[in-house]
Design a protein around this nucleic acid. Structure first.
Lengths: 249, 249
DNA sequence: CGGCACGTTGAGTGGAATCAAGAAGTGTGG
DNA sequence: CCACACTTCTTGATTCCACTCAACGTGCCG
């Protein structure tokens, strides 16, 4: 939770992520950092963007976790996706007249507000960065699709394992996970609302995964004990995450 | 099923759709039609794009219905979205290294192949059209999100009604539905795979909707008998479809 | 200490899947 | 013209999984 100043030498998580898609020049990196100069904090468990609101803004998450979700008339909640550092928040709603979903902070977070006109300017003057941003947006959409498939056609245990593996991969991409574990601030209610389960049933599912020696999810930390078995169980193919081989130099 | 020549006076479905988002000049309309000049047919029940394949192409659907879906190891299928005239096919996979889903023709279809470089050229020279295309892409993504919410948190009857209402709205936008009904070539197996149900249970669900006097789904045609009651049941809010008021002139 | 958020477990129920079978409609070839 | 295959739709009986309701544990914080 230490907000690095934009002038810092350390690249932002967004820069790290886009560097996987393409090689970035010094100038492009600097431009990306400049785009994220305007930082601010936002407290845990509060809404950052609301569906109804008309004035849109997009953010880049710098630190902490967020989630996007929709609420139903009957009080139900469906979490559409989680966001980790380097991810955009509310990007899609820049173009639609009204934002179609809510975004809330899971933990205390640090975001960089990206004014629409600055983004447009960047797109017009830096075509390579524009392509990289489109790649990131396509990847986000592919994750939503994979999520849809999971809820529609995978069993609770398989889809839970899948979700965990996806988060692990995403965090590794921005340097926030090691080989076998990662910090995960989600509680079982939130995760259940993402997986289309009740918290109670998720709890039992997690227990089964634990008893099979596959993984543990406890006290803000996920430990993956048997990654190959998890991947086999989940039918996890990371092609949709488009993890390209790191470029030479 | 009559493929109109690109030089025809009648605007393509894509043009009709984008004209809802913004006012198009004659020149822009012409440019859009030119983009879709290269037309070809594709037979029903055959694959147009496959996940594994590396060479990507994007298409604009001119006539007929298509669907995008993913297959699972256990033989399951999840239909992610249906496409109707005016919709893009395989647009997202232009940026990801490998296409992450399959696209198949539901009926005999006519598509226009959009070469990646022509699309890039259009984006660079026609910023207003580029914005309109991004709007369409955002709308597509919003539909996937809504679909996810339905499968995750809505009951089978509610989500079935919701899907039907969405298709109705989409078809109206391109002039393919009247107020109370539309031609729908989907069979119950395909629709069930979209809704995350078995075909058997969908059949019973459709019967309930029929017995309640809400709608009938039969012989390739959907009749909506009580639209207000359907919308109330489904909790249908069309904001995510971003149906803007038609522009003056 | 009490209150609260979060996690855990048990018992019972309901609803969607599964298994099984048949009806209705369509196309094809003898 | 009819027999046959095939697709699509429909219904019934049964099973099982995930939800619901209820309760209790645990750790944290005021």
């Amino acid at each position: 939770m230490s907000p690095t100043p934009a002038s810092s030498a350390a690249p932002s998580a967004l820069t790290r992520k886009l560097a996987v898609f393409t090689t970035l020049t010094r100038a492009e990196e600097a431009r990306l950092e400049r785009l994220q100069a305007q930082r601010r904090r936002h407290p845990a468990r509060t809404e950052l963007l609301h569906e109804a609101q008309g004035d849109h803004a997009a953010f880049v998450l710098q630190d902490g976790w967020a989630m996007s979700y929709k609420l139903l008339a009957d009080g139900g909640r469906q979490v559409v996706d989680f966001q980790v550092p380097g991810d955009f928040l509310g990007l899609r709603s820049l173009l639609l007249r009204t934002s179609d979903h809510n975004v809330a902070a899971v933990t205390d977070i640090v975001v960089a507000e990206v004014p629409p006109r600055e983004l447009r300017e960047l797109v017009e003057t830096e075509p390579r960065l524009a392509m990289a941003l489109l790649w990131a947006a396509s990847r986000d959409e592919a994750m939503v699709v994979e999520h849809l498939v999971g809820i529609g056609r995978r069993s609770p245990m398989v889809r839970t394992a899948h979700q965990v593996l996806e988060l692990h991969q995403r965090l590794r991409l921005v340097g926030l996970a090691d080989d076998g574990s990662f910090a995960c601030p989600l509680n079982q209610y939130v995760l259940a609302d993402a997986l289309g389960l009740t918290a109670i049933h998720l709890n039992r599912t997690l227990r089964q995964l634990r008893e099979r020696g596959l993984m543990t999810f406890r006290k803000g930390r996920v430990e993956i004990h048997d990654a190959p078995a998890m991947m086999a169980l989940a039918g996890f193919e990371d092609a949709y995450l488009d993890q390209r081989a790191p470029r030479p130099s």
